[in-house]
Amino acid sequence: MDTASRRREFALLRLTGSSRSQVRGTVRRESFTVAAVGGVLGTLLPVPPPALVALALAGEPWPTVPVPGWLAIVGSTALLAVAGAMPPTRLMLRAGPVDAIGTKE
């Protein structure tokens, strides 16, 4: 939904000389950046509560997290972030930029 609300922005980029592939590349890089920041924050922020529980139960401050499970969660979330942005971008770039700039949001 957020990508669909950027129709006029994409049209403006196209009218100022950007190609379709440049706009798609920009959206792709934005999606990867959001996914990377989300992966880092989603990994670091929930650490204190399980660390305290592990300290109380096992005497060690390191919670046991299986690496393949963590990779599956972070990877699938990143895939959803990128996949959720690219198809709407492709659909919006099919319309001519002059037609798209005049649409209301």
Results as ranks from 00 to 15, higher is better:
M1N: 10
M1K: 15
M1L: 11
D2M: 10
T3G: 01
T3K: 00
T3H: 00
T3C: 07
S5T: 11
R6H: 03
R7W: 04
R8H: 02
R8N: 07
E9P: 01
F10Q: 01
L12S: 10
L12T: 08
L12Y: 14
R14V: 00
T16V: 07
G17I: 11
S18V: 02
S18W: 08
S18I: 01
S19A: 01
S19G: 04
S19E: 00
R20W: 02
R20K: 14
S21E: 12
Q22W: 07
V23E: 09
V23K: 03
R24V: 00
T26I: 11
V27P: 04
R28C: 05
S31E: 08
S31M: 10
F32D: 05
F32K: 06
T33G: 14
T33P: 04
T33C: 12
V34W: 07
V34E: 04
A36W: 13
V37Y: 07
G38C: 13
V40M: 10
V40H: 12
L41K: 14
G42I: 04
G42R: 14
L44T: 15
L45N: 13
L45C: 15
P48I: 15
P48Q: 14
P50L: 08
A51V: 12
V53K: 07
V53L: 15
V53R: 10
A56H: 13
E60K: 15
P61Q: 01
P61V: 00
W62E: 08
P63A: 09
V65H: 05
V65N: 05
V65E: 12
V67I: 03
W70K: 02
W70Q: 09
W70G: 11
L71N: 03
V74M: 13
S76R: 08
S76D: 14
S76V: 11
A78K: 00
L79C: 04
L80G: 11
A81N: 12
A81E: 12
V82H: 12
V82D: 10
V82A: 14
G84R: 08
G84K: 02
P87G: 01
P87M: 02
P88R: 01
T89P: 09
R90M: 02
M92A: 10
L93S: 04
L93C: 05
L93R: 03
R94N: 03
R94H: 07
A95D: 09
A95G: 06
G96C: 06
P97W: 02
P97R: 04
A100I: 09
I101T: 09
T103Y: 04
K104S: 07
E105N: 10
